[in-house]
Design a protein around this nucleic acid. Structure first.
Length: 439
DNA sequence: ATTAGCTAGGGGAG
DNA sequence: CTCCCCTAGCTAAT
């Protein structure tokens, strides 16, 4: 464990409670901040004087080697500022070209809205700025949404009253449903045309993948390959499907007023299906169905994730919710790299969902203090292992939708749980393997 | 549509 | 470590 020692010596935990503000305009403000710094320092001293107890990571873990390991790991996961600048510049210019092109169309695509979603824009992207998700969604009203599967994840869309002037009319099939497949194909053509018109020949368009709601673009920037998912979607302005009624339990965490406001917002449907697309139900083909998405809500609650408004603000207490998610994502990725045969079908959305469930149970900011990172991460891993052993991880919004569904066998779930347990019990040796350390 | 003010986060200087 | 500055993204006023 020589490496652990070396690394923990290098990493000094720095509670953000003692971070200074950017500007200090007045003396009163300065004094106030000095008082806060003093308080933080004395709290840290008190923490250090508490004796270590028990086997699980201690709270107030400043003296805990595990805390140092995790802090050092998080440091290594940070995205370099320069890389960030370079990649956002190129990504933004591409998205801009596509967005403007769509807005200038004569069809329904002229009303698309741009939504930056996914981990990069949620500030939980790790290591490299190499994956971007942008959803371009058409707002729709007067449509009827019918569940396509038992779990409530997939839906078909029909235009109410078959009105001739409905913007989606050109994509309505004989059976009355709006064809996800045809809309995605048209969307794809628009994207390709936009890039061609702008002369962006260095942007590769990835082959269409069955059941994938995005046009994936590949950009090579210096020594970094960037994947840009342009996700197509419908923004449905009507009440959320009843399958959401037992999910999204944020009342105790973020409050019922917050929840009510979220439920006034639209939900999204993306052209996505499972299987080969030919399965039919009530005359609707799977390839013409949509999967529900709440990525706008996920982004917003990850950004303002505190039960108090001041969580993580300079004036407030610092929490480790996002840090826990970064670590879990990183652990999952590292294990997948190490055991590619065993763990093919896991993805970071499962990690995000695990965190959302954890926030729903451990609702207070005090349950996630940054000093308790090791303890909080420990609990999150316990949660994740429990879902894996049960073979059931409910979608945060649609609890009947199992994110460890058919594609994740119970065998691979158990294996992943075993690997996680081993890492947890051995100070995460995988965080010290070559692939996890930045040169 | 443009712009100014704000926050989160990286990182450089000392 | 502290202090300070920079950038990207977002929001709301104009």
């Amino acid at each position: 464990m020589e490496r652990v020692t070396r690394s923990s010596a290098a990493a000094k935990p720095s509670p953000r409670t003692s971070a200074s503000p950017r500007r200090e305009n007045s003396n009163g403000r300065e004094q106030q901040q000095q008082r806060r710094r003093d308080a933080a320092a004395s709290a840290a001293r008190a923490g250090r004087s508490i004796k270590k107890e028990g086997v699980s990571p201690t709270r107030t873990g400043q003296q805990d080697p595990l805390h140092d390991v995790l802090t050092a790991t998080l440091r290594g996961l940070r995205i370099r500022k320069q890389l960030r600048s370079e990649s956002t510049a190129v990504i933004n210019s591409i998205v801009d070209v596509i967005f403007r092109h769509l807005r200038s169309q004569k069809d329904c695509f002229s009303s698309v809205e741009r939504l930056r979603t996914g981990s990069y824009y949620e500030n939980v992207k790790i290591r490299q700025p190499d994956e971007f998700d942008v959803m371009l969604a058409i707002p729709v009203r007067s449509v009827e949404i019918l569940p396509f599967d038992d779990e409530g994840a997939f839906y078909s869309v029909a235009v109410k009253g078959r009105c001739r002037t409905h913007p989606l009319e050109q994509f309505v099939l004989e059976n009355g449903v709006v064809s996800a497949n045809e809309m995605l194909t048209k969307f794809r053509k628009h994207v390709v045309n936009a890039l061609k018109k702008a002369g962006m020949t260095d942007v590769q368009v990835e082959r269409k993948k069955k059941g994938c709601p995005a046009v994936t673009l590949l950009v090579t920037e210096e020594d970094l390959d960037i994947g840009l998912d342009i996700v197509f979607g419908l923004a449905v302005h009507s009440s959320w499907p009843s399958f959401t009624n037992d999910g999204f339990k944020i009342e105790k965490w973020l409050g019922s007023k917050t929840k009510k406001n979220f439920k006034l917002k639209p939900f999204y449907l993306v052209p996505k299906y499972e299987g080969n697309g030919n399965e039919e139900l009530d005359g609707v083909c799977a390839r013409d169905t949509w999967r529900i998405s709440f990525s706008h809500v996920e982004k917003e609650i990850l950004k303002s994730h505190g039960s108090t408004k001041t969580c993580c603000e300079v004036e407030g207490t610092q929490c480790c919710r996002r840090e826990c998610l970064k670590l879990l994502k990183h652990l999952l990725k590292a294990l997948q790299d190490k055991y590619p045969k065993d763990l093919p079908k896991f993805y970071s959305y499962q990690a995000k969902t695990t965190l959302l469930h954890a926030c729903t149970v451990r609702v207070h900011d005090a349950d996630w203090r940054i000093e308790d990172l090791a303890h909080c991460f420990h609990l999150l891993l316990e949660d994740f292992q429990r879902y894996l052993r049960e073979g059931y991880l409910p979608n945060y919004f649609i609890p009947t939708h199992n994110l460890l569904g058919s594609k994740c066998s119970q065998r691979s779930c158990n294996l992943l749980a075993d690997y996680i347990a081993f890492e947890q019990n051995n100070m995460f040796p995988i965080f010290f393997s070559n692939s996890c350390i930045r040169p």
